[in-house]
């Protein structure tokens, strides 16, 4: 007879991957108070993949993203980054503030949910894109202009808008501008927090398509926080499902969505409106 109890909920990724991760956390915890934040997170992010963290609001996914991107500290566990240039890993937990800043500036990219959180409202679109380059020491105006034009084009913003303020842009354009600003330094790892939330459906589709294209073209590694399962399905290779601060399921995106194992994931998947 069938053994109904065997292997239920067994994770598919019980065999270690052969390749080296870019970012790895073990038993990482950050609880602001019981039930707020996340605990015992184990994750690896590999080169050229998109990892989606899904879960409802309050599940701790944004806190996890902030910790992974070294914006906030954690209480327990380890968090290691593996720089491209070095064979040894960088422990992000006891890294000096100066080193942390320079790492974020050179290797990480952040895309906020609200585009104006990641843009300067009183600086032109071109200036917004060029700023990270200036931060990294670029001092040639023509070079900066050329880069700004290149990235405006890459995110499908009309080059004529280069000298306009982002406040004159639509929400979708602002979000694309933020992505351009984030990509201009060619980071290895990008963290996105609900990048499509708050946009019209048609604008969302365009942005998703653009992101998918850029991720493939530039071989980016992305950690994407979203509550929208269709966004996760479209963009991500792997999905991590969070509930009440804990990772309840992880695996290949289509496997998690088509054959969810954890009760919470099943609830989440069955709650999605079919179009």
């Amino acid at each position: 007879m069938i053994n109904l109890e065997s292997n239920i909920g067994k994770p598919a990724d019980d065999e270690p991957a052969q390749e080296r991760a870019i970012l790895k956390c073990c038993d990482l915890s950050m609880l602001y108070e019981p039930g707020k934040g996340f605990e015992n997170a184990n994750l690896e992010i590999f080169s050229g993949e998109v990892l989606a963290i899904v879960g409802e609001s309050g599940s701790g996914k944004s806190s996890l993203l902030k910790t992974l991107s070294a914006q906030i500290d954690s209480q327990h566990g380890s968090l290691n980054y593996f720089p491209a240039s070095s064979t040894t890993s960088l422990n992000l937990k006891n890294i000096s503030e100066a080193k942390r800043q320079s790492l974020i500036r050179s290797d990480f990219g952040l895309v906020h949910q609200h585009p104006m959180d990641g843009l300067r409202s009183r600086v032109s679109a071109g200036g917004n894109i060029a700023e990270p380059l200036m931060q990294n020491g670029e001092r040639n105006y023509e070079q900066l202009r050329a880069q700004a034009l290149h990235w405006l084009d890459a995110v499908e913003i009309d080059c004529d808008r280069i000298d306009d303020l982002p406040t004159t842009f639509s929400g979708g354009m602002q979000q694309r501008l933020q992505i351009a600003r984030c990509l201009v330094t060619q980071p290895r790892l990008i963290f996105m927090d609900e990048p499509t939330a708050g946009l019209d459906v048609s604008v969302q589709a365009r942005l998703l398509d653009l992101m998918r294209k850029l991720v493939k073209q530039l071989q980016l590694s992305v950690v994407l926080v979203t509550h929208d399962l269709s966004v996760a399905r479209l963009l991500s290779d792997r999905i991590v499902v969070m509930q009440k601060g804990k990772i309840v399921e992880a695996g290949l995106s289509d496997r998690v969505l088509d054959d969810p194992q954890a009760p919470y994931t099943q609830l989440l998947v069955s709650s999605v409106l079919q179009s």
Binding site: I8, K10, A12, D13, F46, R238, R255, D259
Partner: peptide
């Protein structure tokens, strides 16, 4: 789909990979 038991060995570069238990990568 994730099976509860059994293996699916797939020939890839002259060796078999068990897709049931392989890392998602």
């Amino acid at each position: 789909y994730q099976t509860d038991s059994g293996n699916i060995n797939i020939l890839s570069e002259n060796s078999y990979v068990d897709i049931c238990h392989a890392h998602p990568r």
